[in-house]
Design a protein around this nucleic acid. Structure first.
Lengths: 132, 132
DNA sequence: CTTGTAAATGTTATATTATTACATAACGTT
DNA sequence: AACGTTATGTAATAATATAACATTTACAAG
């Protein structure tokens, strides 16, 4: 059983926004959207984002500097992430594939170095964009 | 046989710097280092970086916003990259593992979406840091 | 219940990373 | 030489993220 995290006020506001939007959001777009809720400064947003990433409620798509809600209910603290990114419409979806995650979690290179975390970003064209 | 790219003046200056440094470099640190060579503005650096990334001479480590020279002589146009990043000393090395690259190149998720590119970043502790 | 500590918040300023817009020059092909 | 493409130069600014400091809240230990 994993620890249940009680989100603080700002964390909750920001998580709810990202979760409901259903798509990747940029930090300053989040800021703009929560100003009516009293969150005024970038730092307030970044602090909540950092925490939400840390506890696995959201993920950062590094190549795009955007944040999405975790789409995999079982990963509460996820340091092993994989995403599919459409280079045309910028849609992002999280990949939950146990073979893939096992393969990567067990990967060890020539140096014998073992990895506790990874982030994988796949790029291509999604179905919708391909059919246009 | 792959196309040989003739680097332009700025591209060559910047590639040589990154290549010789042997470690990840940030864009503005590159700028600082090439000012004596007449490159004055961020844009001059970013344009050269973009081109060098495009032709596979360097790679961008997305989670760190740093650039390293390609360590894999065979990958001239590399859109399928994997790196090992030490979270303690921030050392980065490129992983050239044909099993891994085959596995990922052939990966296809439930949606049937096929990926032409990917970027994988592994995080852990390098040998040096572990032994401290 | 109060005291200590960790976590979260608020606020201002600033650092870092990256792009827009526009003008000019160099390169390679025909 | 004329053309299109690629690269360069320059100024301004946009977008992303953190430092520093003061204060408040949450909550467990005594």
């Amino acid at each position: 059983m994993q620890k249940e995290h009680n989100l603080s006020k700002n964390q909750k506001i920001i998580f709810d926004l990202i979760d409901k939007s259903g798509e990747p959001m940029k930090a300053y777009s989040i800021l703009f959207n929560v100003q009516k809720k009293g969150i005024k400064a970038p730092l307030q947003v970044y602090r909540a984002l950092d925490k939400l990433v840390e506890i696995g409620k959201i993920h950062k798509i590094e190549s795009r500097n955007v944040f999405i809600a975790c789409q995999n209910s079982s990963c509460q603290i996820s340091k092993a992430t994989a995403f599919s990114i459409c280079e045309s419409c910028e849609n992002v979806s999280e990949i939950s594939n146990s073979k893939l995650s096992k393969y990567l979690s067990n990967f060890s290179d020539e140096s014998g170095m073992k990895y506790s975390k990874y982030n994988l970003e796949f790029f291509g064209m999604c179905k919708k964009c391909k059919s246009k």
